[in-house]
């Protein structure tokens, strides 16, 4: 599934990210993302998360190769979920730079909405940063309202 221009615009603003995987027994794991990078093919996204906080995410991806990531704009609740096959890849210095920028933007956005900084600190850490490379096969609108659950993005040419 191709990430279209509207989604590219969406990914350009301060976002929060939540992620999920499932192990071979079908038990889901949940966690938070701390950064991402859209790859040039517009069908792949690298999602960064703390392996220290969310070890079950990496374990689930390694076991079943499946992943979901939901990105939300905190100011207006606009949300999209990306799903597909994923694999873990080595973490690079550039990933840490991206995660720092993502966390700083998210923290400023939430603080601007009235969430106290001491509340946000426990959620976002780059300790044990890991990267999952997600080949996006499904994109869904997840903004609360009548469009929730509808497909987004465009089918690949």
């Amino acid at each position: 599934m191709r990430i279209d221009d509207d989604l590219i615009d969406f990914f350009g603003q301060p976002l929060m990210c939540i992620i999920a995987a499932a192990d071979s027994a079908g038990r889901p794991a949940a966690g938070r993302g701390i950064g991402f990078e859209l790859l040039g093919d517009r069908e792949t996204i690298d999602v960064i998360f703390s392996g220290w906080q969310w070890p079950e995410i990496a374990r689930g991806i390694e076991e079943t190769g499946r992943m979901a990531a939901t990105f939300v704009s905190p100011s207006d609740y606009v949300s999209f979920q990306l799903k597909g096959m994923a694999r873990m890849r080595a973490t690079l210095d550039a990933d840490l730079v991206r995660s720092e920028a993502f966390m700083a933007a998210a923290t400023a956005e939430l603080a601007g909405l009235g969430v106290a900084p001491h509340m946000i600190l426990p959620w976002l850490t780059a300790r044990g940063a890991c990267v999952a490379r997600l080949a996006v096969s499904e994109i869904y609108v997840q903004t609360p309202g009548p469009l929730a659950g509808m497909r987004a993005g465009t089918a690949p040419q």
Binding site: P28, A68, K83
Partner: peptide, 16 residues
């Protein structure tokens, strides 16, 4: 809160 589920075929789903 955050809820993670998985379908019968093992594809996860995550939402607020």
């Amino acid at each position: 809160s955050i809820i993670a589920t998985a379908s019968a075929d093992g594809m996860p789903n995550v939402s607020y």
